[in-house]
Nucleic acid binder design. Structure first.
Lengths: 231, 231
DNA sequence: TGATGCATGTTGACGCCGTGAACATCTGGT
DNA sequence: ACCAGATGTTCACGGCGTCAACATGCATCA
């Protein structure tokens, strides 16, 4: 990640059409990120081409290097955005259910899963980018073999996992999940929703009608919850 | 896919060091595939660079176009190989358990899952390539919007799914899975193992010790089977 | 057996990509 | 008013996938 240049160049803000003859753009970093996000949404991580983003903004390709260390750094910014959007969808799915008790918690787990898979289906390009290897973020290994600990807000990457953890804890409290089955439960849950999302995006599920997709999702979520709650 | 040029040039077979001064290689298609497989094994689908494969074989880059329609076609051949290797691992995992009855079937399901996840962990590059979008194979959509139906042996891609299907059918016969829960069960199972594999390759599970990984895998597989067998 | 046609390989070129170096322009602080 | 640094530009490099034109040699048939 770069030192940073996000502090909104005081003079020209996002208000007055930037890049209209002005030599300095005023908000290039964010403009590039927005352009890259559009590319990702349309074509997935492979469509996030640094030169294309620069072209979209109307700026030379190398200008991007004043705001990003590398292509991978730009892709990482898009990845962060994707993770954030995913979290929003999960939160929206979980918030639909209020109240407490086993059934409410069960419904909240379902909501989280629906939100997750729903995002993957509505924004396949962003979803794929959110879990793209090539982007900075997550963990990496330097050429010397040392483990580097990400760049970009590590918050978003962890946040979705955290939501799941909280809900599973709640499920134990409420008696839905036997305490002895709690450790590692998020792995099963995460694997299931991630795997299902992938089956929709790349696998045989991409041809399903909206109705069929709904059944499949409910079925899969019921299965994983049944697996977790069975003593 | 190309018309085909796989019919082992009668004269020079794989025996005598090919490409040793000979203008014609004799088995270039397979040599390129082997080189590409090595690249994929080491660096995943992104490492499958047509020019690099040609370099490895000691041939000009454009020579590859006598045997493959495009980079994507070569990648597709590697993908097929990965799928085949995956099937072999699943078969090996399933064959470990003989006999019949509910417990044997349950063990066979576990074996299939262990084989699947084991392959993903032992050959991450090939596994990723086996499920790579960019490669030909699977389904695709032409520029005019028509749905094309794959190239490359569609057999391997379907075969692993088929194995799962057979085992689940067996589980119903044997009374493990309630018949009414059978439809769609392969989706849950597939999603779970695929998702788990991804958590190992890209996710937070990549740092686990061999022992810890074993526990996680058993845990996840038990969860999904519990979900499927719960009435 | 020798000529010949086609499969197979090579060279060269094009336009794309990510990226570095050198140069140009603007802007905020003294 | 000036200057330093931030920001943007042009030019260049090597690598990529791919096409067109050309070279080579094996297999077939007169």
């Amino acid at each position: 990640m770069q030192a940073n240049a996000n502090t909104e160049a005081t003079g020209a803000a996002a208000g007055g059409r930037p890049g209209k003859g002005r030599y300095h753009h005023g908000d290039l970093r964010n403009a590039l990120i927005r352009a890259a996000i559009e590319l990702a949404a349309e074509g997935g991580p492979d469509a996030v081409v640094l030169r294309a983003a620069a072209r979209k903004v109307g700026v030379s390709a190398t200008a991007a290097y004043r705001h990003f260390d590398s292509h991978s750094d730009l892709l990482g910014a898009v990845k962060d955005h994707g993770q954030q959007r995913l979290v929003e969808c999960m939160e929206a799915g979980g918030r639909e259910v209020r109240g407490s008790g086993p059934e409410a918690t069960r419904q909240r787990m379902l909501g989280l899963g629906r939100g997750y898979i729903g995002f993957a289906r509505q924004e396949p390009g962003l979803y794929r980018t959110a879990f793209c290897r090539k982007a900075l973020g997550g963990f990496g290994v330097t050429e010397e073999g040392a483990v580097t600990e990400a760049g970009h807000q590590p918050g978003w990457e962890a946040r979705s996992f955290e939501m799941l953890t909280e809900t599973l804890d709640e499920a134990v409290t409420v008696g839905l999940i036997p305490p002895e089955r709690r450790p590692g439960a998020e792995l099963s849950a995460w694997a299931m929703v991630h795997g299902t999302a992938m089956l929709f995006l790349d696998g045989p599920l991409d041809v399903l009608s909206e109705e069929e997709a709904g059944y499949v999702i409910e079925r899969v979520l019921r299965d994983v919850i049944a697996g977790l709650t069975t003593p």
